[in-house]
Computed example of a mutant assay.
Amino acid sequence: MPSSVTAEAALEQCARGRLVVLTGAGLSTDSGIPDYRGPDAPARMPMTFQEFVASPTAHQRYWARSHLGWARMGHATPNPGHVAVAALGADLVITQNVDGLHEAAGTPHLIALHGRVADVVCLSCRSTTSRIALQERLERANPGWAARHAEVANRPDGDVALEETAGFVVPPCEECGGLLKPDVVFFGENVPKDRVERCYAAVEALAEAGGTLLVAGSSLTVMSGLRFVRRAAQRDVPVVIVNRGPTRGDALATHLVAEGTSEWLGRLAAVRTT
């Protein structure tokens, strides 16, 4: 069981020495992006990769929702939590988020574990384009769509709560006519092996240097993030978890902080930069 549930003890643990930070959707809620499993998170059944590629209707539904969601998500800006993480001097920041806000905050030594929704890839020729360019093509192919659905509620990762998507036109890859997909890891896909190995290596380095793994704003429900907490615990690396609500890694934590991320990370950044 965790040895402490106090924010002060957790701050002391992270104040000095080597640090790897793992962030989740809870870090971006202060930027107006809903999370997946927080107390106010909307009910959601994420689309799987298999459904996306096998069903033309699902493909259409995804991009119709994303067209609306991106128009809102694309205007999100880093909040004080992102700014604080960028200032921590961490060996590595591993984010499970695809919103690009760590990049916008200027975070060094960053791995976007699940990719970035700002990038688009063709599943046939593997050419990549920007989401902004695709957004312009979607607008031209679907004039008035955004205005007609202006009141639809936001969901995580640029998704929206829209059920009626028939008639939405999804343009193909301009290079080969193939299927376009955001360059992110869907449910049912694997995180690229090289990303995972780089993250494991950073955690292993903490074991040798007496560092700490800090988890901020993640429920650790999926294995893609939890595995690094498990590796840290196996190597006797202290684990600090800052999250509103329980996480799947709580039993492995050295310190738990049941607070929002922005304020606590700001306090930590102030300590580590003095």
Rank of each mutant, 00 (worst) to 15 (best):
Q96I: 04
L113M: 15
A90G: 12
E103A: 12
R116D: 12
H82F: 02
L113N: 01
A105H: 07
A84K: 02
R131S: 02
L110Y: 09
G81Q: 03
G100H: 00
R131F: 00
G89K: 08
N97C: 08
G115T: 07
V98Y: 02
L110P: 07
H82P: 06
H102S: 04
H82Y: 07
A86Y: 12
C125E: 08
I132R: 02
A133S: 06
A104S: 15
G81A: 05
P108S: 08
V98N: 12
R116T: 00
N97T: 10
P108V: 09
L101S: 04
R126A: 10
L110A: 06
R126E: 12
R137M: 15
E139I: 14
L138E: 14
T95G: 05
P108W: 10
D119Y: 03
Q96F: 08
L110N: 10
C122V: 01
R140P: 01
I111V: 12
V83M: 11
A87D: 15
D91Y: 05
L113K: 05
L134G: 10
L123H: 10
T128N: 02
V85C: 07
L134R: 09
S124E: 15
A141C: 10
H82N: 02
L101C: 09
L123V: 14
E136F: 05
R116S: 07
A90K: 15
H82M: 06
R126K: 15
V98P: 03
T129M: 02
G106F: 14
C125N: 11
A90Y: 14
A133I: 01
L134M: 11
S130G: 14
T128E: 09
L138A: 13
H102A: 04
N142E: 14
V117D: 12
R140N: 12
A112K: 01
A112N: 11
A86V: 03
H114A: 08
V120M: 08
L138C: 13
R116L: 02
V117R: 03
